[in-house]
Amino acid sequence: MAEQALRKAPLGGFHGGSAAAHVTAAGPASRLSLRAGTDAVTALSKALGLDLPTKPKTSASSDARHALWLGPDEWLLIDENGADLAALAAKADVLHSAVDVSHRNTAVLVAGTKAAAAIASASPHDLSPSVFPVGACARTVLGKIEVVIFRTGEQDYRVECWRSFAPYAFGLLAEGAEDAGL
């Protein structure tokens, strides 16, 4: 019997930024790329314990579980407690695609009075409160990479990216946070 393999997060121990915009690595979470037609939304919502959002740029959260609208048939589900999301979705017994992306993605958290300005150092996405209120989310670009930006609070953002891009995303956000904090 082999020894149990240990997890190693891509951004373990990273932190940076400025007093006005802290940049830290998010902890591990389970994530699911969920694809389904509109006819399956109700059943999947029930199975997952939250209402899958159907409006662009919106999300739904329940405890530490979040469903982010990424496209008309696409959601990113994040469970910070590590629940088996694919198993939950399977209970719905409706046509869908559930693919585990827990290890594909990682997240950088940006928090503080200048958090939005820090992100705006590299992302063209409009984070103004009128069009990107708390709970808003969008897939977009950050410098040369693709990210999902999720506004979790007035001054809190979660930036999801693929793991090999994480040091780049972190570096950009940390530089942006330093500049935003001047």
Partner: peptide, 15 residues
């Protein structure tokens, strides 16, 4: 601007 040194281009590394 920020695209210098390590941030010039993402250096993708495997686990």
């Amino acid at each position: 601007n920020h695209s210098r040194g390590d941030l010039f281009d993402p250096a993708r590394k495997t686990p």
